[in-house]
């Protein structure tokens, strides 16, 4: 009884919860699974934990809320083993190589313009501050991955709008202030070197992403019934 993304699309919201735990309130079950996902528990363990709630509720006739308390607290109290590859932090960690590529791309474009104008490239304190702020923002995002995921799921309509607006404002303000007030030239060089450095950065970022690529199938981690697991076991 594997419930995959395709299955969810086919039967709509709460499809997985209704399939695995028909006697458990679907909102409770969804919150429970979500919390375990956010903690980085793999799909097979989530399915087994939900099935045990289902078994208990069915036999006792109690609601999940009465027997187990709030889904978030119960999910945390189980202290299930965490699969590092499926934690929100691991997912967001893949932003880091992409960020390096983006910075390299900006460097290539900027240097290319100066090179074509036959002007020297001037690296100022402001440029370094902008690059550092960008990388710090990405690292902060990775560090706060669980909270960011939780906000994104709970406020799925408002969160993208507010997050994009805040990032845009903060990024623009940082760039404007850094370029306006931190204009001390640290280094002058030919634009061609900037193109080379930017291209190397893009290539390095791509290589990094390839090296950290997940094996095929590891990204797909459906919540499954424990009986699927038992049947697959030798």
């Amino acid at each position: 009884m594997s419930v995959t993304g395709a299955g969810l699309k086919a039967t709509g919201r709460f499809a997985m919860e209704r399939t695995l735990a028909p006697h458990v309130d679907e909102v409770w079950a969804q919150s429970f699974c979500l919390e375990l996902r956010l903690l980085g528990v793999d799909g097979a363990r989530i399915g087994a934990a939900l099935s045990e709630v289902e078994s208990h509720c069915n036999e006792s006739g109690q609601s999940a809320q009465l027997a187990f308390g709030t889904p978030v607290e119960y999910a945390r109290s189980l202290r299930l083993p965490v699969d590092g590859d499926h934690s929100p932090r691991a997912v967001l960690r893949f932003l880091v190589p992409v960020s390096v590529q983006v910075l390299g791309m900006f460097l290539v474009v900027w240097s290319l313009v100066e090179w074509l104008r036959d002007q020297r490239l001037e690296v100022t304190t402001g440029h370094l501050v902008i690059a550092a702020a960008f990388l710090l923002a990405v690292m902060a995002l990775v560090r706060c991955a669980v909270s960011v995921h939780r906000l994104a799921v709970i406020h799925r309509r408002l969160f993208p709008v507010i997050a994009v607006a805040l990032l845009y404002l903060a990024g623009t303000a940082t760039c404007l202030l850094a370029l306006r007030f931190l204009d001390q030239v640290l280094w002058r060089t030919s634009g061609v070197w900037g193109v080379v450095a930017g291209a190397a950065e893009v290539s390095g970022g791509i290589l990094w992403a390839v090296v950290r690529r997940r094996p095929p199938g590891s990204v797909d981690d459906p919540i499954t019934s424990p009986f699927d697991h038992e049947m697959r076991a030798p």
Partner: peptide, 12 residues
């Protein structure tokens, strides 16, 4: 003994 108490203990 509620499920919220029993099953975390069994897990431990």
């Amino acid at each position: 003994v509620k499920g919220g108490t029993l099953y975390p203990l069994l897990n431990r």
